[in-house]
Design a protein around this nucleic acid. Structure first.
Length: 776
DNA sequence: TTAGGATTTG
């Protein structure tokens, strides 16, 4: 007789009970009446262990409080399941059951226990049915905890010790949580089963504890596991998928609890400082405690109290690292992988209580090792610059080792950083190329349809200090192949406007600091402006927070709103409006949200999870964009600005038409158009001083992406692109190079006149020219 | 029972 799960939603059961069933009234309960189509609903106040009747049938008795009477049923209880577990394990006081199609019998114990004179007999043969009603849990805020109670809690993890073997018989995990009441609770959680302790991976995770016992200890409340303790753990990142991590099979998790988790995430994001950037091996320093997310490549026993873990995280430690001497036969791991990654792996020596867990780890598994200590090798060591990694004994500060599942987002990130190292079939050979080589090219065959090559540089670039790419650079003319080269002297002596093909060297360029080359350009009015600095932006956003969010504008037909107040002294009000499409909220990575009162940091965090973020402010009747000094849209790393002169901003509700589309693309250009914004484009503005032995001229470059093949919009936030651009400029104009050493390059320039009342001047601009990059 | 957060000293 399987137990069916029911939920009570707005007073009705879901799914509905079969229509032939009618609720029975206690006063109608009579022996001899037909109760086949009747049901009772009651809560468990007592349950007895399973016993065998004389005929061998398993017998199990539960007391339900309806009014008060017995329920007992005879059955082979192994056939009864609640989820995958048998009922007796899952029965908790206050669980609610619906019992239908029972037989009535006289209760033999009514006289002693004072309960109802009848009991119900439930059995498969009688066609009975049992429904378990998902309980409506009540969650106690952490500032309302009382000694000696058993409660249900939600909290944000402020501190935790990953499970370790206690000195008693169980695993232990110590977890400190906090909630919006700003009260902390430290919980000691024990279980003989590692899997039933909460699966916390980082500070900031959100936990839900059911049936945790509260006790007072040293004048403070503490939580401790009690019978029936169960937990769910969630990623604490705003907007991340809400997927409970748990070993419980039959847990309940309703829609309103989704909201609880999201609300806690939002509260934590603005009230707790828990998102310290993760340290990678490339960022370690001597004398540091840090948590490392990594993959286990090898392991070896060292001695009785220490154990070696060889791990990597896809980045290279900037210091030479110590190698723990172990016998080759003691080292477990794939020999080929250990060899390939030998310059990327680090040795971590773990001690004492961590040895047992370390020994059981599987090669290839993903780990987070908490509170590793780096240490400079001791002074009497021959090579004092080497850095050592220790996981000392004890569990202070959460020291320990946790295994991460492959689904963990940090593991996914880790794998991305592995790719360049793993996918190259020629990794080992490339690794041995001694240094960067730059060879000038003289006789390359010219392809008249594609490019005229003036020079070729082969540049080898270290990637993760190990992986090498080879690039060619050449200035390429993309059109006008019919033009012949013109000497600069001739151009300087000619009238404008005209177009030329030239062969010249780049003597110098401005600005030398390449980030200064990035500007915002309005293609409508041709104006240029500086890209606002982060500090400026922070100030603008602070100003926008002055009008508090207007609750009348919340939860409209096309967006859902949440609002909260920060707990700091400023008591700042923040509202987020999640835009729906087709009446549905989309996946975070596809969706657009609007935020009021957020700081730059908060907005930036949201852009990590959501496709588009629009900062807005409340007016009396509508949400509006901020002043156009602020970006009208943030997407990924890019802040999109509008031209103050050419834009006519419209109210935010203009976006509702886009939201109504079947699959809105949320393209910045389309959003700009709908909002009446003339978008500014990121451009590189540079001045090239070109020479060819007959003369010198300054030519301007105005480039969105075509010349460098680098989007100007992305360079300010992408280190790799900055390095790439610097490398291109170093190739075109090597620092410290003599004129004779400079490469020739070919490009197109056009001359144009600029006249005002006082003077007339001819300017030159580079056009239709591209730097070609060829990976070999 | 265990731990009760608050770095090892190799």
């Amino acid at each position: 007789m399987p137990v069916k799960l029911l939920k009570i939603i707005k007073g009705r059961t879901e799914p509905p009970l079969p229509s032939h069933l009618q609720k029975e009234d206690l006063k109608h309960l009579r022996e001899g009446f037909d109760h086949t189509n009747k049901y009772f609903k009651g809560t468990v106040i007592l349950s007895y262990p399973v016993t065998k009747l004389r005929d061998g049938t398993d017998f199990f008795k539960v007391v339900l409080q309806v009014s008060i009477f017995y329920l007992s049923y005879c059955n082979n209880f192994n056939k009864i399941s609640l989820g995958e577990e048998a009922i007796p394990k899952n029965l908790n006081s206050h669980d609610t059951f619906v019992v239908a199609g029972f037989k009535l019998a006289k209760s033999p114990t009514a006289r002693q226990d004072g309960r109802h004179g009848c009991h119900l007999e439930v059995s498969e043969e009688a066609g009975s049915a049992i429904y378990s009603v998902a309980p409506k849990y009540v969650y106690t805020p952490l500032n309302h905890l009382k000694d000696g109670t058993v409660v249900n809690l939600y909290g944000i993890v402020k501190f935790f010790k990953p499970p370790y073997i206690s000195k008693g018989t169980d695993f232990c995990s110590v977890v400190t949580i906090v909630d919006p009441s700003n009260v902390k609770l430290t919980c000691s959680l024990f279980s003989g089963n590692l899997d039933s302790l909460p699966k916390i991976y980082k500070v900031g995770d959100i936990v839900r504890f059911h049936r945790i016992k509260i006790r007072e200890y040293n004048g403070q409340m503490q939580g401790i596991t009690s019978g029936g303790f169960a937990s769910l753990t969630f990623d604490g990142t705003v907007g991340a998928p809400i997927v409970p991590r748990t070993s419980s099979k039959g847990y309940s998790f309703m829609d309103e609890e989704h909201k609880t988790v999201e609300d806690l995430r939002v509260w934590a994001a603005s009230n707790l400082s828990i998102s310290e950037p993760a340290v990678k091996l490339s960022g370690v320093q001597p004398m540091l405690f840090f948590d490392l997310t990594c993959q286990l490549v090898g392991k070896a026993k060292v001695d009785g109290s220490s154990f070696l873990l060889k791990v990597w995280d896809g980045t290279k430690c900037p210091y030479p690292t110590w190698k723990v001497p172990v016998e080759a036969r003691d080292l477990e791991g794939e020999k080929v992988v250990l060899h390939r990654l030998r310059n990327l792996t680090v040795d971590i020596l773990v001690y004492d209580n961590h040895v047992h867990l370390a020994r059981s780890l599987k090669i290839g598994s993903f780990l987070r090792i908490y509170s590793i200590r780096t240490k400079q090798a001791s002074a009497d060591n021959e090579d004092a610059s080497r850095i050592e990694f220790h996981l000392h004994g004890g569990t202070g500060y959460g020291r320990g080792i946790g295994v991460l599942p492959e689904s963990n987002p940090d593991v996914k990130d880790l794998k991305k950083s592995f790719l360049p190292n793993i996918q190259s079939g020629s990794l080992v050979q490339l690794e041995d190329i001694s240094s960067c080589t730059i060879t000038s090219y003289l006789g390359r065959e010219t392809n008249t349809h594609f490019a005229t090559t003036s020079f070729q540089l082969v540049v080898c670039m270290g990637f993760f200090g190990l992986f090498l790419f080879c690039f060619h650079y050449f200035a390429v003319l993309t059109d006008h192949q019919d033009l012949n080269n013109t000497e600069l002297k001739t151009i300087l002596n000619s009238t404008a406007p005209q177009q030329y093909r030239i062969r010249a060297k780049l003597r110098t360029y401005k600005p030398q600091k390449l980030y200064q080359a990035v500007k915002l350009h309005c293609s409508k009015c041709n104006s240029l402006q500086e890209v606002p600095h982060g500090d400026e932006l922070a100030l603008i956003l602070q100003g926008s927070a002055i009008p508090a969010p207007n609750p009348e504008l919340h939860n409209t037909s096309w967006y859902d709103s949440v609002m909260w107040t920060t707990q700091d002294q400023k008591q700042r009000k923040i509202a987020i409006h999640f835009v729906r499409h087709n009446e549905m909220l989309q996946e975070p990575q596809n969706s657009l949200l609007m935020i009021e009162g957020g700081t730059l940091k908060e907005i930036w965090k949201l852009t990590k999870r959501f496709k588009c973020v629009i900062p807005v402010r409340s007016t009396e009747h509508d949400l509006d964009l901020l002043d156009l000094s602020a970006p009208f849209l943030l997407q990924g790393n890019i802040k999109y600005y509008g031209c103050k002169q050419c834009s006519t901003p419209k109210p935010i509700k203009s976006l509702s038409s886009m939201a109504a589309q079947r699959q809105p693309s949320w393209e910045p250009a389309e959003i700009a158009q709908v909002l009446g914004i003339e978008p500014l484009q990121y451009v590189f503005i540079m001045k090239f001083t070109l020479v060819d032995g007959t003369g010198a001229l300054d030519a301007y470059l105005l480039d969105y992406e075509k010349f460098f093949k680098i989007p100007a919009s992305e360079i300010l936030t992408t280190d790799f692109l900055q390095q790439k651009m610097q490398m291109i400029m170093n190739a075109l104009c090597p620092p410290g190079g003599k004129l004779d050493d400079l490469p020739w390059l070919e490009c197109f320039i056009k001359s144009y006149n600029v006249r005002d009342a006082m003077k007339h001047q001819v300017y030159y601009q580079i056009f239709d020219t591209t730097i070609a990059e060829d990976v070999i």
